[in-house]
Design a protein around this nucleic acid. Sequence first.
DNA 1: ATAATTTTGTTGACCTGTCAAATTGTTTCG
DNA 2: CGAAACAATTTGACAGGTCAACAAAATTAT
Lengths: 154, 154
Amino acid sequence: MYTQPRSSLRSPSSFVTFRLAKLQASLNAQATGLLKANSGLSLVEWRLIQILRMHKSASLSEIARIVQMDKGQLSRKIKAMVEKGLLRTETDKQDQRVQHLKLTAAAKRLSEKMMPTMEARQALLLADISADDLATFYEVVDKLDKASKQRNIA
Amino acid sequence: MYTQPRSSLRSPSSFVTFRLAKLQASLNAQATGLLKANSGLSLVEWRLIQILRMHKSASLSEIARIVQMDKGQLSRKIKAMVEKGLLRTETDKQDQRVQHLKLTAAAKRLSEKMMPTMEARQALLLADISADDLATFYEVVDKLDKASKQRNIA
DNA sequence: ATAATTTTGTTGACCTGTCAAATTGTTTCG
DNA sequence: CGAAACAATTTGACAGGTCAACAAAATTAT
């Protein structure tokens, strides 16, 4: 017996992706606002700083792999951050193409300063959500992520 | 007794928002690819067409409210879509500022043509997800959405 | 009626995200 | 060695998204 697709597409908002897109926009606006008000950092800058806080030093390509961010965008962003005094670059001794990126003291200070706010935000976001529900949520996110990699449909 | 924040922020990828951002990028790429291959529509065009399929006729401001999209972006997009022959505009009789937007036959044909693919995609995305898990997922999305509207933190 | 306010839509400026081509340095292999 | 293949980064072009200023029309308040 044939059953209707679970979420019929009569309404655009029933597309999973519509809802996620709206959520994403809202989350971005919130984070961008907090960062701007408290540190002057952009969202991308904040993310790069967090990556480098973890990895101490990484090259553009490594970062691109880790966050799945576009190389081109990264290249430009890094250039700007070096000019703003947030990053230092060191050319690799063996391979002169690769630049190792490191945080400057200024970037570390800004990161320290923002961290409580960003953790408070994360806590606020998750406040009403039970551990079980959150686990289920992440499972679904992972499944969607996997399915979204598939490029041949119909 | 104090417990660690549920998701400690040692790793950037533990931010809910990191994961959602990556998922979003992947979903967008998938949809954009399908649309381009099968119809030449952009993602935004597809979304606007779906909104108008539901509402028959709507003004720019109404759409902006429905999808929470920027007025400026909409204005330009609509102009382009009128030029491409996807939309018609009709000036309101009572209020000469408002333009009612309607789909052209061409837009409806394209939408019909794409719909099976987009429904198949939606089905693929949700294939492995139980109804219960999906419900939980949507609940969490709604909670995140609400929390993301809060602008004063810390 | 008319001045002040609000609403609708347009425009300019600017940032982010994606794709592809170009550049430069490194490695592989005949 | 030297040509071809490969990898890291840069650049150009363009779509998407956000913000703020603006003009025109409508509403309201006096």
